[in-house]
Design a protein around this nucleic acid. Structure first.
Lengths: 207, 207
DNA sequence: TATGATACATACCGGTTGGTATGTTCACAG
DNA sequence: CTGTGAACATACCAACCGGTATGTATCATA
């Protein structure tokens, strides 16, 4: 019962190899032959599990990418009293955990968004859905922060969440291109500075 | 003397068609055949002016993309006393001038950066050079603003410039994917809010 | 006006791509 | 034990890719 069916395993194998190949070269330049070589499988296996290359790409977005975003950026935000501190922690943890090789490959979601959204509507819809969920999660966290007095009440949760996600992806994109860890660090510092500016100023002590 | 040599004209024609095709599909997916069909030229012309596809892409970056960034984002910043107002104006003008079709294609520089920087070092170096110039121009403007008292002295010009460029590209990328003009508008609002937070607070009137 | 280089056009090539049609193995139900 | 469909493997295909070799017209120059 706990052992996945072998068929599901090879499907997962294909998905992960596709994710890597797409992460490295983008979807359009991703080579099915390369994916098959990496997995040791053949065209027969691939086209048994997926009707075509596009469907494979969709599955990568719907399953792997969606999962990574929600687990890494949304789940830790739920049931948090102080969303600004929580977001700050997430940013700092991400900064520490990212290996240089990961930085140079960039955010898989952003990569796909920039490449595919003008080219394929199916990709665009799926990617946009993830971004909507992402923005929504941050907006809700900000609203909770406003309710319990940790976030300034004059910030617009939706707009701010959109900007935060945009700025994060922008910083990742810069670092990806710059090959300079300091740049990501500096961008992150400014981003955290902006984040902290959303916080309600602590009450001054009466002395 | 004022009429460009015909050879230069066809080279320019190729460059502009290549820019469009790359802007639409990315460099790797850009089809030379499509470029030639658009221009009415043939392989002979293309490979007379450029040794290969990569060199054509490099020329697009070195000439067209560099020019667009400097003219649109850097030249208007020079000799400006109030960099924050100047940047704000640039952002608002860009927001108004961008047609929906342009938004959906994204920033040509960012597109190339995300696609090519992990794949081709030549592209990465060229793109990074443009970004360095861009960041440098904004940083210098911020420093001038600090010197004449329009920008807070506690902001780090370099870090802030890096974050501003990153956030701009991030906002463009979001809007490109969202197909929602409001999103770009909202992101822009937050970005301008951040920009204004860098300004020296006006001296309170003595009443 | 003769000459040679420049500026293209035409035809062709090997390699890779995504996709398909057919074969084969294997697990499992009857 | 047998049959039957799922789960692959193998072989093959047309289309397109970037690139090249060669031919030709045009233009500058002497």
């Amino acid at each position: 019962m706990f052992t996945a069916r072998k068929s599901d395993q090879t499907r997962e194998l294909l998905l992960r190899a596709a994710f890597d190949e797409i992460h490295r070269n983008g979807f359009q330049a991703a080579s099915l032959s390369k994916i098959l070589a990496d997995t040791g499988l053949t065209k027969g296996a691939l086209y048994h599990h997926f009707p075509n290359k596009t469907a494979l790409g969709y599955a990568v977005v719907d399953e792997l990418v969606t999962n990574e975003i929600t687990q890494r950026w949304l789940a830790p935000l739920e049931n948090q009293d102080d969303p600004i501190t929580a977001l700050r922690t997430l940013l700092q943890e991400a900064g520490k955990s990212l290996r240089p090789a990961d930085i140079m490959l960039g955010c898989p979601l952003n990569n796909l968004a920039q490449e595919m959204s003008p080219v394929d509507e199916g990709f665009r819809e799926r990617i946009n859905h993830i971004y909507n969920v992402w923005r929504g999660g941050i907006a809700q966290a900000l609203m909770r922060g406003q309710a319990n007095g940790t976030v300034r009440t004059d910030v617009h949760p939706g707009e701010t969440a959109a900007f935060l996600v945009a700025a994060m992806e922008g910083c990742m994109g810069m670092a990806k291109n710059a090959h300079d860890p300091d740049l990501l660090f500096n961008c992150g510092k400014s981003l955290i500075g902006y984040l902290e500016s959303l916080r309600v100023a602590p009450k001054p002590r009466v002395r």
